[in-house]
């Protein structure tokens, strides 16, 4: 049995239906544990004060936003190459989640930047890239919504996602070239020798928990959304049959 068997819609409905409650439950558990730990039981940073607590939303959301695009890209690629409907629908389901995550990262970032940098928004490379990412998500969702025929929509959005990914990376480096930033470099590296620059363990453990929670939430929502889209497509076929008779 090959791995592609899992992408058969019937198979997919079976295993995803069984897996969904577990993944969703685990997501809820990790997310609430991470966020409650982060919000109530972590000390304030000596420079950032209590705003350091925003990190438990901001970093996981940003992480999920980028991974969401990755899922879309892979889903689109699999659809174009192997023409598995499930993968196209998974890419479709991932887009609104990714867009929301991008929005959360932008908003929480603005609330953190206001007291720390003294401004809600700066045209910093990371911030700008995220805004661009958000625009990409919106375009992708709008294209899905605009086209009636599901297979044509899947094809067109897949091409867009792939071209968009290439240009998203290009934009990222173009923006870096354009303006050196205010945003600090990444502080969450799992295996890194330079410990002193990294985030302290008190902040690190709840953050990891919260990131796991966000990722699991992402997975469960993608599963749920894909299941919905599969059902919606079946429904469409049934309606068309009814119309004919």
């Amino acid at each position: 049995m090959s791995i592609w068997e899992f992408a058969n819609p019937r198979q997919f409905m079976g295993w995803s239906g069984r897996a969904l409650p577990w993944v969703a439950g685990l997501a809820g558990l990790c997310l609430s544990a991470g966020l409650i730990w982060g919000f109530f039981f972590t000390p304030d940073d000596f420079r950032q004060g209590s705003t350091v607590k925003i990190i438990y939303l901001h970093v996981p959301a940003a992480f999920s936003a980028i991974n969401g695009y990755l899922i879309m890209f892979i889903g689109s690629l699999i659809w174009l190459i192997r023409r598995h409907h499930v993968s196209a629908l998974a890419a479709r389901a991932a887009a609104p989640i990714g867009a929301t995550m991008t929005l959360i990262a932008l908003i929480t970032g603005a609330f953190w930047g206001q007291p720390m940098w003294g401004t809600w928004w700066v045209w910093d490379p990371r911030l700008t890239s995220f805004l661009i990412l958000f625009l990409f998500y919106l375009g992708y969702i709008a294209l899905w919504a605009a086209i009636d025929d599901p297979d044509t929509a899947a094809d067109l959005t897949s091409v867009l996602a792939i071209v968009g990914s290439v240009f998203a990376i290009l934009s990222r480096y173009a923006v870096l070239f354009w303006n050196q930033g205010l945003h600090q470099g990444t502080t969450v590296t799992v295996a890194d020798g330079a410990q002193q620059d990294n985030i302290a363990n008190v902040f690190f453990y709840p953050l990891i928990l919260s990131m796991a929670g966000f990722s699991l939430l992402f997975i469960s929502l993608v599963l749920l959304g894909t299941r919905t889209h599969i059902r919606a497509r079946r429904l469409r076929v049934l309606f068309q049959k009814e119309m004919r008779t």
Binding site: I132, L135, F136, L138, G139, A142, L143, A146, I147, D148, D149, T152, L160, V163, G164, F167, A168, L170, S171, A174, V175, F177, W178
Partner: peptide
């Protein structure tokens, strides 16, 4: 956006992010 009726707005939304590197 060929198949989309009145796709002008959608077209701008799709194309503008792709214009960013050139513009920069």
């Amino acid at each position: 956006t060929l198949g989309v009726k009145r796709g002008g707005l959608l077209l701008s939304l799709l194309v503008l992010p792709l214009y960013i590197p050139t513009l920069i």
